[in-house]
Design a protein around this nucleic acid. Sequence first.
DNA 1: ACCTAGAGTTTGAGTCGTCAAACTCATGTG
DNA 2: CACATGAGTTTGACGACTCAAACTCTAGGT
Lengths: 225, 225
Amino acid sequence: MLASETVENYLKAIYLVQREAATDEAPMGKIAASLGVTPGSATSMVKKLVAARLARHERFGGVRLTARGTRAALDILRRHRLVETFLVDTLGLDWSVVHDEAERLEHAISPLVLDALDRHLGRPAFDPHGDPIPRADGALQESEAMPMSELGVGDAARLVRVLDQRGDSLRFLRASGLKVGAGLRIVAIEPGAGVMRIRPDGGAVVSMSTTAASRVLVRPMRGRG
Amino acid sequence: MLASETVENYLKAIYLVQREAATDEAPMGKIAASLGVTPGSATSMVKKLVAARLARHERFGGVRLTARGTRAALDILRRHRLVETFLVDTLGLDWSVVHDEAERLEHAISPLVLDALDRHLGRPAFDPHGDPIPRADGALQESEAMPMSELGVGDAARLVRVLDQRGDSLRFLRASGLKVGAGLRIVAIEPGAGVMRIRPDGGAVVSMSTTAASRVLVRPMRGRG
DNA sequence: ACCTAGAGTTTGAGTCGTCAAACTCATGTG
DNA sequence: CACATGAGTTTGACGACTCAAACTCTAGGT
């Protein structure tokens, strides 16, 4: 790749911000915020991406990756998520720390190492957070899932993905028995307090804010509901 | 570490050049050459290392790492060699490529990942080239060995270490059956041509220049000699 | 229509590491 | 002992990336 480590970080950030946005355009401010950089820095870097035909952008408008930019971003995401999977599955690290570790390692992984890693892990489709791992050809299949916050009292579901990468959120989930693949049931909802009470299979009831619950994706199961 | 990736590379290079040198001082030119950088760049970087109390140096003299600098260099070497071991042992990559791969990865390995890697590999003492892996506390035990070039006709030995990291050298050795741990016997020496003929256990006789052979370290075995 | 608040952009400057080229030093050979 | 040779150093400039602060645009409300 011609891309420096910084360029890679921008591409990944733009890609992820773009996915969040309804309009499929990444606002400059969010790009800057997600990289911990001032808006001015983001603007000038985006100019370079545009010059390199990796993104499109017009003054005071949003940023959108080109096909090439998207392809590159998916490649980085693939490296990131395979590294995370490796850190958890092979090295046994806790999922609450692997995001930051992978953030550093993803830039140092050559195609050769990446493929060896992929084979060693058995060509996984999802990383430890349930995020889909882009294939080598750039294909990406999101798993069908809904925010846990949309479940009703009594609904049963299986936890399939955690969008939040913050260490303390992940530690809380792990401590509660809410891990990817686990079953759970909503035992109560208190809209006034903005809190849901959830019982993981074989665990004790825990409380979560509905905003936190909206970043946990589940697949509903038939069950009393 | 306060050390940037560049600083890490300089420390490692100085350490290795220093080991080579009889005087235990690294000449500026060799440092620059080993990093693929102009002498001027090396000079100015060494100034920074001196300011950071990682190296000592006086104008037109050689460079010598301080205790702190040596400690840091050993830490980098540890990361490098553990990564190499991982790439070969766990991912099954060929030893002829792992040096360059490790060169990139070594800077992205946190203490946490490093220790997990070390445990996963069974706390190895040597990397795939037979180079000793510094311990976490900085201890480094070189294995006792002599250059293969010093063996005589008929001598048997075990290959314990390959100093040359160049891909083509390593591919040649692998193709010849000369890998770390393998037994071998010197079948002929032709001083005029500067060539030795070697038979690896269970393999065909191969020829090597004595200069190449001097970069292959062996432990002699009792055998007809 | 105006006018302001917030988002985005520009400018100028700073850091890090690099190079090319001019300069300085240490040596040994004639 | 002078002086050429090669090793090392300095200088000035550049590219990549960043920030702070001044500036500009867009959108929404009145």
